[in-house]
C-alpha cells in the first residue's frame, strides 16, 4: 500500500461538526478493509482529539496518514496549551466548561483514553503555544 495523507480542519467551539474528520477517517479505513478493531481505536482517538480541540483549543488540524505498516494521527491546535501535561493525563482531571459537560464531554477521560487506544502516544504542549499530539497505530497489531 502506498502512503496516503489527508488533513482536516477543526474549528474552535464548533460542537456540531466536531467528529466529522474522525467519522471520515473511519469510513476511509473501512473502504480499505482494515481490521474493524483497529478502525475503532483510530476513530475513538481521533474523535477524542477533535473534541479536545473544540472544547479547549483554538483552530486546529487533524492529519491522517496510512502506509502498509501503520496509521498515524497528528492533531494540533493553536489554543491556550496545557500548563501541566501529567495532570491533564490523569483520568478525571478536566478544565472543560460546563456547556460541554452538559453535552456529555469534558469528564477528563479524553487524553488517557487516547493513550490507551494508541500504540504510540506523544503530546507536546506549552502554555500559550498550543498542543500537538501524535498517535501511531500498528496495522499488524490490529485491535
Amino acid at each position: 500500500m502506498s502512503a496516503f495523507r489527508k488533513t482536516f480542519q477543526i474549528n474552535k467551539k464548533d460542537f456540531i461538526h466536531a467528529g466529522e474528520a474522525s467519522v471520515a477517517v473511519k469510513n476511509l479505513l473501512k473502504s480499505l478493509h482494515i481490521d474493524p478493531k483497529l478502525i475503532r481505536r483510530v476513530a475513538i482517538c481521533g474523535y477524542e482529539g477533535e473534541m479536545n480541540v473544540v472544547m479547549h483549543g483554538g483552530e486546529g488540524f487533524l492529519t491522517f496518514e496510512i502506509d502498509s505498516e501503520k496509521v498515524v494521527l497528528n492533531i494540533s491546535d493553536d489554543g491556550p496549551g496545557i500548563a501541566d501535561i501529567s495532570l491533564a493525563m490523569k483520568k478525571g482531571y478536566s478544565t472543560a466548561a460546563d456547556e460541554y459537560r452538559q453535552m456529555g464531554f469534558g469528564a477528563g477521560m479524553g487524553l488517557p483514553n487516547m493513550k490507551e487506544n494508541s500504540d504510540q502516544f506523544d503530546i507536546e504542549s506549552e502554555k500559550g503555544k498550543g498542543t500537538r499530539i501524535r498517535m501511531v497505530f500498528l496495522i499488524s497489531k490490529g485491535g
Partner: peptide, 29 residues
Amino acid sequence: MSDILAKRADECVFLTGLTTVQTIRTASV
C-alpha cells in the same frame, strides 16, 4: 459520551438521554 468511548461498546445497545449529533458520532466511532 466519554464513558462509552472509554469502554468496549462495539455492537452494544447504547442508552442515553442526550439527543445531540454527538450521540450518533460517539456511537459511530
